[in-house]
Design a protein around this nucleic acid. Sequence first.
DNA 1: ATTATAGGCTAATTACGATTAGCTGTCAAG
DNA 2: CTTGACAGCTAATCGTAATTAGCCTATAAT
Lengths: 207, 207
Amino acid sequence: MNTRQRIIKAALTLFAEKGYSDVYVSDIASAVGIKAPSLYKHFKSKQEIFESILEELKNSYTEQAAMLSINGSSADADAAVYSEINEETLIKTGTGLFLYFLHDENMKLFRKMLTIEQYHNPELAQLYTKQYYDDPISYQSELFRLLIAQGKFKECDPDTLAVQFFTPIYTLITVCDRHPERENESLAILANHIRQFNKAYLREEES
Amino acid sequence: MNTRQRIIKAALTLFAEKGYSDVYVSDIASAVGIKAPSLYKHFKSKQEIFESILEELKNSYTEQAAMLSINGSSADADAAVYSEINEETLIKTGTGLFLYFLHDENMKLFRKMLTIEQYHNPELAQLYTKQYYDDPISYQSELFRLLIAQGKFKECDPDTLAVQFFTPIYTLITVCDRHPERENESLAILANHIRQFNKAYLREEES
DNA sequence: ATTATAGGCTAATTACGATTAGCTGTCAAG
DNA sequence: CTTGACAGCTAATCGTAATTAGCCTATAAT
């Protein structure tokens, strides 16, 4: 990894931990193993480091979202998959996704940084809401819409269903971000949530 | 209101907006209408201002929580009330509570400040989780436990139910904190959520 | 009336953090 | 070889924020 990349990574880690203003250029430098003035060979200011991180993360989010089809585009395909799936598999899938979002280094750091910096500027607030609310909700909503149309789920508003499915998951992730020791407890709640959600909204098979 | 109180209020407003480190003692002073050095007649440091705010807010939270019985202590009494209530009244109550938490000046500022500062020190993380997760969940859970025992709600795990009821509400509040212009949209989603939640879990009356 | 105190002010002081200047060694291209 | 760009360093510089020193006024208690 070249120095520029190492700087970005170190800075992200620090920003996610302490917030922009409490991280000194010299902290970033020493995390990389160089002196503060040398950073300026790679970036023209502290602010530029921050913006580069944002760029970087927006791109990697877009990639990963595409990969995991969190963007609404491929909910059709996914619906086909989910419609054949049973409750326990769903819990496994849900748990897997939960753990991925919770532990993936970039995801975690980005999330923490956005959390801390969300009121710093409106663009960050937008980004936060898009990533952790609008995008997931619209994907889930589309998915539920299809599953309802297929008769797999009970007749009801897919947006509401999406909110009810997703917000507990996201909230549990934020709890674990603050208290990693509560991960097991949270996983148990997650499993219960999915189980109970299915029981409430999944249509009984008539086969 | 005496100067000390005015300082606390001004500082809280600023901290909630920009975070501790980006608020200068002189900002606080000028918001109060005095000069920075004069602050030191009331507090011995910037840090002490922050701590006083925390004290103040913890107390007012405790009071208000007691008033609104967000602490588990009086769920029994509340269950009696809720058990006689119908869906539309429930939506009204839920909406009222939602709007109260969203708009009450102290609640809002405290929430924003804790959001921004939650990773600054472990005490704040604890406090955040307690106020915006553990306390409400345990109250709701107790309430649902009673309602289930009374046969008003379907037989299921009250903790899970509490999570499913509460997390959408809290998430919507945070969305509105970031984007006040989305309040109406959020209120609509809230109403749908409560309606659908009732449909899913409320037991049909056999009368 | 006198005086102590509270609370305000201006002018330091001190510390520290971002950035710039300018030097140096390395190494690849000519 | 030798030259220029790259990436590092040390030593300024510059700006600013927290805090302190020391002075002043009003007012309330003696």
